[in-house]
Structures are given as C-alpha cells and as structure tokens.
Design a binder for these strands. Structure first.
Lengths: 116, 116
DNA sequence: CTTGAGTATTCCTTGACAGGAATATAACCG
DNA sequence: CGGTTATATTCCTGTCAAGGAATACTCAAG
C-alpha cells in the first residue's frame, strides 16, 4: 500500500505538465516520445517529470526495445481519494443544509444570488 | 462556478502546513491564534499560509472583534474530487485490465521516500 | 565493435516560495 | 486619544524546483 499523505504525491501532481502527463496516461500507456510531443517540452524536461512521477509511484515503466512505455499506476491516486474522503462529508452536509434552508425559507424568498 | 483544476488550488494544498491547517479547519472553524499554536509556526508565516488558502478559495474568514475566524470552504475540495473522478474508474472497474497491461512491467523501483 | 535510436542524467541559470524579524493595520477598551 | 490585542504585510534571505543544452547510458542491428 502506498503512503497516503506522502508529500511526493502532492508534489508530483502540483505541476501542470505532470498532471497533463497523468491525464495522457489515463487514456493509455505511452512511450516517452509520444509524451514529449504531447507536452511540448524538451525530451530531457519530460524525462525529469517522468522521474518525479515514477518516484511518486504514479507511473510504471515497461521497457520495449529502446522505448520505455509509461503507464499509470492507480494506487497513489487512490491514496489521494482516501485523503479526500473526510472532506467529502463537508460538501455533502453543506448541500444538505442548503437544501434544508431552501426548503424552510421557500415562502420567505430571500435571493442574495448565492454563488462564488 | 469555481475553477476546477485551478493551479492555485493544487499549489495551496501541496504545502504540508497548509494541508495541516485545512485538516484543522475540517474539525471546526478556528481563529488565527489557534492555528498558529497548532502549526508551530510563527504568526506571520501562518498568516501568509492563510492568505494562500484564501486566494485558493479554500477558506473563508469571519471577523469576530479583533479575531479572524477561519472556516473551510468545501467547494474547491469538491473540485479536486471532480478532477479525481475520471481516475476513479481505474481502481474500481478496469483495475484488472490495467493490471494486465502492467504485468510485463520491468520495474525499476527506487524508493527513497522516507519523509513526512 | 560501431552506429543509431530512444531515453536518462548532469550542469547551470533563473525564478518562485517558505520562513523569520520588523512593521503596519484594525478593533476593542479605558 | 492612547494603549493593547489580534492579524496582515513588507523586507530580506536561503532553499528548491523547472527548463534548456550538452552528455551519458542502453538496446538492437549489422
């Protein structure tokens, strides 16, 4: 099992390029060349990003001749989901409370254009 | 509508101290003083972290005399949850398929993760 | 063993960010 | 108003990460 609140996981996913790579790999595994092209970064930069993702356990490599095919590993993202779990009750209860308030004050009709 | 994959959201949550603050505020709203004490940081540092969280929309402030009581805003974390959604299928439904794809993986497993 | 393709690593520079100390601002009390 | 509490902001410094260029590594083919 992966470490849940690991710093390297957050650190890896904070970078937009790395999130883009992760999104790419969600579709299907890809060799480095494809990722380089899709990212618009140089090959070395991409390779470094891939290393960060590897160290965070987010991706796995399969060697295919000279190519290295990267694939997503679901476990760390599942760990993120686990981190998120306690907060999920927050917006559930918020929606619930909002629903109750709307229900109770339906005749009263205050509409302060609630959004953000 | 809140911006879903906003960079500031990831950026805010990447910092361990800020995640700690968020966790603190999950229990209940708190004035700055309490957060300072719980974090073990200086008051200015804490205040700066709170600003980052504010800018990311993760917290709201309520003024109570000289105190400022911070509370969690669920929306951005819900946005994180939304980001996570496409990946959730990875470890729910198609975990087997992915595992099959990965089973050839010649892993170079370096694991220097011993912090946090 | 040489060559070439594909990828990783090192070196270097630049920019962002965290943290502390000092200072500014705001609100309450007398 | 002056003083005190609670918090925010600025200034400064050290650290760390990102990106490009150049280089090293690895595998397959001949």
């Amino acid at each position: 099992m992966t470490t849940v609140s690991d710093a390297s996981l957050w650190n890896a996913l904070t970078d937009p390029h790395r999130r883009a790579i992760v999104a790419l790999l969600l579709e299907r595994p890809r060799p480095v060349g494809e990722i380089v092209e899709a990212c618009g970064l140089s090959q070395p930069s991409t390779s470094k990003h891939l290393k960060v993702l590897r160290d965070a356990g987010l991706v796995r490599v399969r060697q295919d001749a000279q190519r290295r095919v990267y694939a997503l590993d679901p476990a760390p993202i599942a760990a993120l989901d686990a981190w998120l779990a306690p907060y999920r009750t927050l917006w559930n209860s918020s929606l619930d409370e909002l629903g109750r308030r709307l229900d109770e004050t339906s005749d009263d009709n205050d509409d302060p254009s609630a959004k953000d």
